[in-house]
Amino acid sequence: MIQIENVSKEYQRRGRSVTALQPATLSVEQGEFVSIVGPSGSGKTTLLSMLGGMLAPTSGTVMVLGENLYQLDVSARSRFRNEKIGFVFQNFNLVPWLTALENVQLPLTIGRAEAAVQRNRALELLERFGLADRADHKPSELSAGQQQRVALARTLISTPRLILADEPTGNLDPDSRAMVMETLRECQKQFDQTVILVTHDSSIAESAERKLRITEGVLTEEQPRLNVASA
């Protein structure tokens, strides 16, 4: 599913080279739930961006679903992201001037799906998340938990093979947090989706099948892959 080989990232800041990620190699299987932990500024989001095809590594190769992401041109990479990868953000990143329904439709709008397909699929997902009666509400009219559910619905509308979540529960109350995690796990099981989740919450990190840690740009595996069959 994901195969990264000697991937590193360096930035130039004020004439100095800053290493965000030391050369790392990692493989993730289809359907795995992987958590990444580490202190702020350690390189977690950098790794997530590179896996999502949004940040070219300084060295190494990033293979996702058999595609060498950074050998694709920008448009092909965008299309790949639209069809195969879903993002969940800590701050939800909903478009403030669109309704919940329109926000959920966005990936399909970008992919030029038919209007009726967009609408039906979005309504279906909002109903699944208990937000059918909030379809016409703007994000500012929703609670944080509701906003994250809308964002989750937006992520799932294109049934991505890979979900990249950047501290998705960071801004949520305990009930909403539990609901988001439950949804991600359900998706993983129901649709065989791979979930890679960056978190500061140790209990969430522990509950993943694999736990990776990044410290000062060095990626290490803290909790190796579980043998699900023997667990």
């Binding site: 949004m54 448009s75 992201r81 639209n82 990143n93 970008i110």
Partner: peptide, 16 residues
């Protein structure tokens, strides 16, 4: 910026 970045994350091309 963030809104446009989100659209890029959702699969919008720079040309879009």
């Amino acid at each position: 910026r963030r809104e446009l970045g989100t659209l890029l994350a959702l699969g919008a091309t720079p040309a879009l």
